[in-house]
Design a protein around this nucleic acid. Structure first.
Lengths: 238, 238
DNA sequence: CCACCATATTGTCTGAGTATAAGATGGTTC
DNA sequence: GAACCATCTTATACTCAGACAATATGGTGG
């Protein structure tokens, strides 16, 4: 299987600056309301051209992190203007120990959205999707969650459920959050033993979706999210 | 009262190009997978400099609408990569008659999220927030939903509820969607008589939140979202 | 209190050169 | 012969530099 997306080997300069600046903002190095130094000064300090720096700032502005105006300079926006659900912003938050309050907020949102998504999927999944779901479940069982293949199957499983909801915004939302949260979890936890076998819960969820039982699917997914919260808390506390 | 955000009088060139290109993409003029003409050609065609055009593309890339790579050019990304919950993207979608399926998806998501938010708000609202909520409700009653003041009070009412959830990501999500949907609704409907007085429903919601009754708040908000769906459908069908 | 103005800062333009990876090319292996 | 792999070419985005324009701030004067 070839990589589905040919990602650039190294981040472009503008992207890497956007990343660094973005991280600095979400971690509070630059607080909301702060005015960044001028373009010329920043660009020189980073040893990049003004255009590269400007493109980075435009990206952050597109994500609501900063606002630029002539004469006023570039300010860090109020948190309420940040696109907290932007995949990049989420990733930046999780790159450096997000506050426990934020993580809990995110899981609170997942707890609202994902069980509802599972219920929709149970009602709308096609036969084809069901069989793909079954295949992913089988792969998870074969390889286990400690292998790359197993984790890929896990992600495929959850992604298939989202697609089965036939709801694009909901799919976007859930996969963004899951990606950011899940990535750090598996990264920090790879040595640690998983506290409990997650497969039975997945099996229950699969059965509910197969049966078209929305309520059972909702309950099973709620249990899975609850487990993910526990795992994430463990990996963040240490 | 002075304007809370000093918005630039006119959109900057890069922002206006990002807007136009963004609309062209979300409306399908440029389909996912399409490769845009080169920077030089596009910039010339639009009579702008390459840097302005590039900054526009960078903004769209930050929202997941396009992907640029040397030699390959700039491609419109698959819909699954779009940040459908980005406020700008949402606004662009609603600027030109979104598909009914998309609108229904959005309301399906609201129907999942907003009642849950109301329930959280009922449990967590402070006394101060409650009194502000009461004030907003009073302003709505005084001015009615046909006046600017009344609509401002309505928005304040709903925003206060979101803040009371103490959940930033959830607040971001709901206000983005509500802004995009609400904006088009009031715009297209301003001449039309509102089909039913929305105030009683707001009153019920307020009472539930005041009483700290999560379930009642959930139900009341569900009713409000249902009404909003009807209003939006009416304004889009015509 | 309002109107005006100076000026710092971002915004825009031009033009040149570099780096990347796609796609063609040709060679190698089964 | 066909499929695979290494190499080269080249289109394209990427980066840089420097100049000028437009904007809105914050002060100044009426």
């Amino acid at each position: 299987m070839k990589p589905d997306t040919a990602a650039p080997r190294a981040l472009r300069i503008h992207a890497s600056i956007a990343h660094d600046l973005g991280v600095a903002i979400v971690t509070g190095v630059h607080q909301p309301g702060d005015t960044l130094p001028g373009e010329i000064e920043c660009a020189e300090r980073l040893n990049v051209s003004r255009s590269a720096y400007r493109e980075a700032v435009r990206m952050l502005a597109a994500k609501g992190l900063v606002e630029s105006r002539p004469k006023a300079g570039t300010q860090v926006s109020a948190r309420s203007r940040w696109n907290l659900l932007d995949p990049d912003v989420l990733q930046w938050m999780f790159e450096s120990e997000p506050s426990e309050a934020f993580v809990r907020s995110l899981f609170e949102l997942r707890m609202i959205v994902e069980p509802a998504a599972a219920a929709l999927a149970a009602e709308r999944r096609t036969g084809r999707e069901l069989s793909q779901l079954g295949h992913a479940l089988g792969e998870m069982a074969r390889h286990g969650l400690t292998t790359a293949e197993g984790r890929a199957a896990d992600q495929a499983f959850h992604h298939l459920i989202l697609e089965a909801t036939r709801n694009e915004p909901l799919t976007t939302l859930s996969s963004s959050i899951a990606a950011a949260v899940g990535w750090t979890t598996i990264f920090k936890q790879r040595k640690r033993r998983l506290p409990r076998d997650p497969l039975p819960d997945h099996q229950v969820l699969y059965d509910a979706i197969a049966a078209g039982d929305a309520d059972a699917a909702r309950a099973a997914m709620a249990e899975l999210v609850r487990r993910a919260l526990v795992d994430t808390e463990m990996s963040l506390e240490r």
